[in-house]
Amino acid sequence: MATGGRRGAAAAPLLVAVAALLLGAAGHLYPGEVCPGMDIRNNLTRLHELENCSVIEGHLQILLMFKTRPEDFRDLSFPKLIMITDYLLLFRVYGLESLKDLFPNLTVIRGSRLFFNYALVIFEMVHLKELGLYNLMNITRGSVRIEKNNELCYLATIDWSRILDSVEDNYIVLNKDDNEECGDICPGTAKGKTNCPATVINGQFVERCWTHSHCQKVCPTICKSHGCTAEGLCCHSECLGNCSQPDDPTKCVACRNFYLDGRCVETCPPPYYHFQDWRCVNFSFCQDLHHKCKNSRRQGCHQYVIHNNKCIPECPSGYTMNSSNLLCTPCLGPCPKVCHLLEGEKTIDSVTSAQELRGCTVINGSLIINIRGGNNLAAELEANLGLIEEISGYLKIRRSYALVSLSFFRKLRLIRGETLEIGNYSFYALDNQNLRQLWDWSKHNLTITQGKLFFHYNPKLCLSEIHKMEEVSGTKGRQERNDIALKTNGDQASCENELLKFSYIRTSFDKI
Rank of each mutant, 00 (worst) to 15 (best):
E314Y: 04
D178H: 13
S317L: 03
P104T: 01
P336S: 08
R46S: 11
L63E: 01
M321H: 15
P271M: 12
N135S: 09
P271A: 12
N325R: 10
W210M: 06
I122R: 01
E238C: 09
Q204W: 04
D39A: 04
L174W: 10
V265S: 09
G111V: 00
H59G: 10
N138R: 14
N170M: 06
D184A: 06
V108W: 10
G262F: 08
G188F: 12
F103M: 13
V253Q: 02
G227R: 02
L240N: 13
S237G: 10
C235D: 01
R46T: 07
K148G: 00
N150M: 13
R162E: 06
F205P: 14
R46P: 02
C234R: 01
E238P: 01
V253M: 14
C215H: 00
R297M: 07
R279L: 08
H48L: 10
N149Q: 01
D169T: 14
K80C: 05
I122W: 00
E130P: 00
V218P: 02
C315S: 02
N325C: 10
L174T: 13
L260W: 03
T45Q: 13
H274G: 15
R279W: 04
H236W: 01
E49S: 15
H127T: 15
N170Y: 07
D86V: 00
Y87S: 00
K80N: 09
T157D: 04
P336V: 11
C243H: 00
H290Q: 14
D277I: 04
K193L: 03
R297V: 09
C335T: 04
E181R: 01
N309V: 06
N325A: 05
I163L: 09
T229S: 11
K224I: 09
K80D: 04
Y259C: 14
R69S: 06
E49D: 06
C264V: 00
E238Y: 07
T320L: 08
P104Q: 00
F258A: 14
M38A: 08
P249M: 07
L29T: 14
I109N: 00
I146S: 01
T107C: 08
T157V: 08
V265N: 01
I172L: 14
N150E: 02
R69Q: 10
H214F: 12
N43M: 06
D178V: 09
L50D: 00
I185E: 07
I158W: 02
C234T: 00
P36L: 08
L50A: 05
L81Q: 04
L64V: 03
G132S: 10
N170V: 13
D277K: 06
Y272P: 08
F116S: 01
K310S: 13
P249A: 09
V93F: 00
S324N: 04
T229M: 10
E314V: 05
Y94C: 06
E147Q: 07
R145E: 00
G183Q: 07
E51I: 15
S77R: 12
P197C: 08
S284C: 01
N42M: 00
L60N: 00
E97M: 14
Y272M: 13
T140C: 08
C315F: 00
I222N: 11
H236Y: 03
R263E: 12
Q216A: 03
C209V: 04
T189Y: 11
T107L: 04
R297S: 09
N308G: 05
D177A: 12
I82D: 00
L120I: 15
L96V: 05
S213Y: 13
L114V: 15
C182T: 01
V218N: 02
S324Q: 04
R298T: 11
N175R: 13
I139Q: 01
K310I: 12
C315T: 05
Y30T: 06
L47M: 04
G132E: 00
P336E: 07
F285R: 03
H214E: 13
H307M: 15
T199A: 09
N170A: 11
K176W: 08
T189N: 08
K67H: 02
N42K: 00
I146T: 01
F78G: 00
D101N: 10
N149G: 03
S296H: 11
E151Q: 07
P36Y: 13
L164R: 09
C228W: 01
V265A: 08
S323T: 09
S143W: 14
M65S: 09
R279S: 04
A190I: 08
H28S: 12
H59N: 04
I201H: 07
P269S: 10
K224D: 10
V305Q: 03
P316T: 03
I201K: 06
G188I: 11
M38D: 00
S323A: 06
P70A: 08
E168I: 10
F275M: 06
T107F: 05
T211E: 15
I201T: 06
D86Y: 03
G58Q: 00
I146P: 00
I222A: 14
Y171A: 06
Q287P: 13
H28F: 10
